[in-house]
Simulated scan of single mutants.
Amino acid sequence: MLIADDEALVRAGLRRILESAPALTVVGEAADGADAVRAAARYRPDVLLMDVRMPGMDGLAAAARAAAAPGAPKVVMLTTFDLDEYVHDALRAGAVGFLLKDTPPRDLIAAVHTVAAGGAMLAPTVTRRLIRHYATGVPARTEQARDRLTALTDREKEVLRAVARGLSNAETGRALFMSEATVKAHVSRTLAKLGVANRVQAAIVAYEAGLLG
């Protein structure tokens, strides 16, 4: 994985935490957004852990570039604040989630494993709150999101609700009385129909459309 933060002490602390886990390897560090994009292209990390606010090219712009590149890493944003106005745009740009900088070491390691395995940083309460905060209240967005939901079957909408609540495939299966494999297939079809890249972006559409009430 790759760490991008403009503060050397923060990078050092993150590296020390992550490299304490036997299955994680930090392949490089970057001090700003432009450096992060170059390093991602050079090292091809599975996960890019990137600060939102950095000098020059900030984390938001860097996330969009890194996520759009061939062999893109899973981008997770780091922020000091749990209501950072840039995070919603970062998720739209292709980031799969975000973490607060005061996340406990054990949770940080678990989160990186989750993302590397193809998951999204949606389950933490702070993530759901932030997505809900920034993805609602804009009439034009709400109408567009509702139009996108018309392509879904009733079952796919049920699965989307579960995704937006942060449930895993296994938890969704138990809630909707489906096998995990069936849930995974529904999720894949739902993402394709909505034209989104991951579960976090699908959750944003669900919140914008008011699917969760």
Rank of each mutant, 00 (worst) to 15 (best):
M54A: 09
E208D: 13
R148N: 01
T136H: 09
G210R: 06
G166R: 00
L212A: 02
G56E: 07
L149Y: 09
T80I: 14
L49N: 01
T125A: 15
E171D: 14
T150G: 06
G28V: 09
A117G: 09
A90M: 04
R15E: 14
K74T: 12
F81S: 12
D82T: 11
I109C: 03
R16E: 15
Y86K: 13
R106S: 12
F81H: 14
A145G: 08
I17Y: 02
D32L: 06
R148K: 13
A67T: 07
E171S: 12
L108W: 07
A12M: 13
A66V: 04
V205S: 05
V159Y: 00
G213P: 00
R15D: 03
K184I: 02
A185G: 08
E143Y: 06
L83N: 12
A62M: 05
A21C: 01
E29P: 06
R141Q: 14
D89Q: 13
A66N: 08
A41D: 08
K157C: 04
R174G: 14
R165M: 08
M50H: 03
V26S: 09
G59P: 11
D154Y: 01
A202C: 01
R141K: 10
L108G: 02
A135C: 12
R189E: 13
K157D: 00
A64Y: 03
T79V: 08
G71A: 04
I131D: 06
G56M: 05
N198Y: 01
D35R: 13
A31Q: 12
F81C: 06
A164L: 00
I109M: 05
K101E: 08
V10P: 00
T127E: 10
V76E: 10
A202D: 01
A145H: 06
H186E: 15
A206Y: 11
T114L: 15
P70D: 04
V138N: 11
R165K: 13
D5E: 02
R155N: 07
R11N: 01
D51A: 05
A116I: 03
T25C: 10
V52R: 04
F81L: 14
V26E: 11
